[in-house]
């Protein structure tokens, strides 16, 4: 099975941080891992499995926790792999993937400003889509739609 092979290959370097390797629609598999050992998992996936391109980083606000997911692409096997980690707590944070895949830079900036997930040791954490003094994480489910005038006062940067 592909998932078993993946788990075996990941075991030497990141075995302790792997929670599950499960089939997922559209991907080779989805690897669920602990956010504490994120960098080990990234390095194992990049070096040992050969997934050399990070296609996207995203974050989801489930109401009780937030999930960060990564979709990586192997130019050798021409396959996608999903990585996902559940973040709990009031200030969810995870290690940045930029040391392994530099293309994570802008994706993590976007995930931070829209969903409010902090990426530790990110080289350039600024707003990407919003004005620099924007005070909200607007894709959180707790974010209520403002009246235009109210939002204007709060977010106006000009």
């Amino acid at each position: 099975m592909a998932t078993d092979d993946l788990a075996t290959q990941l075991a030497p370097r990141a075995g302790a941080n792997i929670l599950a390797v499960e089939p997922f629609q559209g991907l080779t598999a989805r690897v669920r891992f602990r956010p504490e050992g994120a960098l080990d998992v990234f390095r194992a996936v990049h070096d040992d499995l050969g997934y050399d391109h990070l296609s996207m980083v995203g974050a989801i606000d489930w109401v009780d926790h937030r999930e960060v997911f990564y979709i990586v692409w192997s130019d050798v096997t021409k396959q996608y792999l999903g990585l996902s980690a559940d973040l709990t707590g009031d200030a969810p944070h995870i290690e940045s993937a930029t040391p392994v895949w530099p293309s994570a830079n802008w994706h993590e900036r976007e995930a931070w400003e829209l969903v409010g997930v902090a990426f530790d040791h990110h080289p350039d954490m600024r707003h990407l889509l919003m004005p620099d003094d924007y005070a909200f994480h607007p894709l959180l489910r707790s974010f209520k739609l403002h009246e235009p005038e109210e939002l204007e006062v709060k977010s106006r940067s000009v």
Partner: peptide, 17 residues
Amino acid sequence: GGPFRTAYSVVPGVDKL
């Protein structure tokens, strides 16, 4: 602002600027 008037990122009318 058009259909995006209540969106979190859109200026509701350029006459505010």
